[in-house]
Design a protein around this nucleic acid. Structure first.
Lengths: 344, 344
DNA sequence: CTGAAAGCGCTTACAG
DNA sequence: CTGAAAGCGCTTACAG
């Protein structure tokens, strides 16, 4: 069997309680005893049993990370490693571990979260998404279990600690950016509206249209699911409109490149014939043609802060609710053209 | 406090032992008792305490996943979500959870793995990489702890269960592919040679050169770190060689696109002036210009099988050592040109 | 088919 | 500054 605290205690001629206190670096133990015990621990290659420790101490020193089922969020993929890196950086600094949810369907995720919290598998949870009317979130909130969201919650915004970009604002900004380039017909390829991020960006887009007094048509708004489903058909329809757009805002770089390819099939070139701006700034977008103008959303920071906030909540359950918008940067590259306006 | 097995036992008028057996669906318990106990569990919203259960049962029902520190493996990023998805799919089916390593440096990773196994934090470990002379792997092997690798081990290949692509072969194949297109000067942009995957692909490349009797020069082999470090300088030097290559094999799509951009800066066009093939087949590579010819390495499958193998080992520690090469597919797109050979 | 009891390996008031 | 003892919430031979 593995070495236990008892073995160490015997070898060091102290009680198990003392060994336990040395592990915790309890200040009431004399330096001399600590040295002695530590020497023995090292010599016997003792490592505390994680489960026993957690059971007795009623804490797990791990945080649960829940991702939405991967199929539903297009930008999940490149997003994921970077948030995780942010979370790990914060968690690791506080000696916390990461427990990853493995569920497939939404129902499975819900069940997993329930058993994570009821079974005391983790001390807190990070939701890597914000979904409209999310059961999982509601459960966490009702259970008063420490949790944090990457994404603005759909409801109860004042009661939930979260971190996000100001998605309404960045969508607004991006439209203004195109406006200042002279564009007056701006279409929007949005994400799945079950996610708040998609709703927020759409709203920012619509508000910007109103604020700048631009032309709006329902035909100017397309879901990326439509594109996934029908291929270039929806893009074709968009471009065959009586008043086709001169610019497109896409909700993710991956989607942007898909669109660009479909445009090419229609012999429409970016940025010569149409401009395109996107969000999320994937690492590839600098290298690929055309280099994409995209909003960098500081994914690492999103993950890092979500974990920081969670750790605060775990340590002090009465910590006040916090929100924070992580700053973004519009990275200008070569996918947008300036339209010379005649007579303006 | 949370509901415990004792509460359920009282409520159902049985002993805690019986409740425990119902949870485990022990066949020796009568259906009638099971029904009664289950009804109570549901009513009280009982969920077994994970830590207590693990401590008593001496198993954790979780697998540890160790990634190399993210900075060092260029292709880690897009690779990562997909392996994880594969691992989760397998683990979830067996009701195992995922514990993710959070370490930064190699030393930290090593320490974390040691405490994971000594502290019985996980039942088994998946190493998401194979590194030359890896201390972590050596430790796992010596500890006789169940583990599995994604990547051929550098040493002790016969004693370690792993899953991989046949990287030597696919590199070999890719060179032959270019050869058959008429290319006779083929350069190789390889990855970090601390990783076996990079070594294997380099070896396959070199062997193919020998087998086809092609020209080889040390100047034809570049590390992607050199490119990261010096930007287009190393590509420039490559193309200014007396005999410049007509084709390049790149060890990853991301690197390929970087190279393509540098080539463009030199007014060298793909595939017109030079061909390029790559490995890993990122999701973007179909959409971006030029669409890249790349070897799909079935990342999901790699993750899935690594977890399957591990689970086998956990269940039966004497399970025989297994290796498996996951099949790959060369996805032909538009980054390779046919060279018309004069007089051949 | 079910229960009483010991035990998993720790932590933590309590006492001194 | 340190120890004896109870307890964390389960599981699992053992006995019947």
């Amino acid at each position: 069997m593995a070495i236990t605290i008892i073995d160490v205690a015997k070898e060091a001629n102290v009680s198990p309680a003392t060994v336990s206190r040395v592990i915790a670096d309890n200040p009431r133990i004399s330096e001399q005893t600590k040295r002695k015990v530590r020497e023995v621990m090292e010599r016997l290659e003792y490592h505390p049993n994680f489960q026993a420790r957690n059971l007795a101490a009623k804490s797990t020193k791990t945080v649960g990370v829940i991702m939405s089922n991967s199929t539903s969020l297009a930008f999940q993929n490149p997003f994921f490693p970077e948030v995780i890196r942010g979370i790990c950086t914060s968690a690791h600094a506080s000696k916390y571990g990461i427990y990853l949810s493995t569920g497939g369907s939404e129902e499975e995720i819900y069940q997993e979260v329930v058993s994570m919290v009821q079974g005391r598998k983790v001390d807190g949870i990070i939701l890597l998404y914000s979904r409209v009317n999310d059961r999982t979130m509601a459960f966490l909130k009702d259970a008063k279990f420490p949790f944090t969201m990457v994404g603005r919650p759909y409801k109860y915004e004042d009661e939930i600690t979260y971190i996000d970009n100001d998605n309404q604002k960045i969508a607004h900004d991006v439209v203004e950016y195109l406006f200042n380039l002279g564009h007056r017909q701006i279409a929007f390829i949005g994400g799945n509206l079950e996610f708040v991020v998609s709703k927020d960006r759409l709203e920012g887009y619509q508000q910007a249209l109103i604020d700048t007094g631009l032309f709006y048509s329902d035909a100017y708004f397309i879901h990326d699911e439509a594109i996934k489903a029908t291929g270039n058909k929806s893009i074709k329809e968009l471009m065959q409109l009586e008043v086709p757009p001169t610019a497109i805002v896409a909700h993710d770089d991956l989607v942007a490149y898909e669109i660009i390819r479909y445009l090419e099939e229609l012999s429409i070139q970016v940025p010569k014939d149409i401009s395109i701006v996107s969000f999320n700034n994937h690492s590839l977008s600098a290298y690929v043609k055309p280099p994409l103008t995209s909003v960098d959303i500081s994914i690492f920071e999103l993950g890092f802060q979500s974990a920081n906030f969670l750790l605060e909540k775990i340590i002090d359950p009465k910590a006040p609710v916090k929100h924070h918008f992580v700053p973004t940067t519009l990275i200008e590259r070569d996918s947008c053209g300036n339209i010379k306006m005649v007579g303006e």
